[in-house]
Amino acid sequence: MLEGDLLLFGCLNDFESKLGSRWSLAGPETRVSALLEELSERAPGLDSVINTPFFKVAVNNKVEPLDWVLSDGDTVALLPPVTGG
């Protein structure tokens, strides 16, 4: 079992009650994409955000591709399309 802190930003704050502040994966698949699938099952509607072209994931404060392999203790941040400026 892998687990770590989960950070939510922007509109994804609305999913905090369903997702909490920790992630976990039982394996054997431990890529970011597998985590996103697991989170989407727990939070209906999340997939509409993570399937947008500008959605990104940061692992330990660095944006990584969806096939990035997670390690135990990683901090995962879900970053919806930005709206600053």
């Binding site: 930003f9 922007g10 500008f54 970053l79 919806p80 930005v82 709206t83 600053g84």
Partner: peptide, 14 residues
């Protein structure tokens, strides 16, 4: 800079 800031900088408005 403004065009890129709108799409690439980690900021979210509410």
């Amino acid at each position: 800079l403004m065009d890129q800031l709108k799409t690439r900088v980690m900021l979210w408005k509410q």
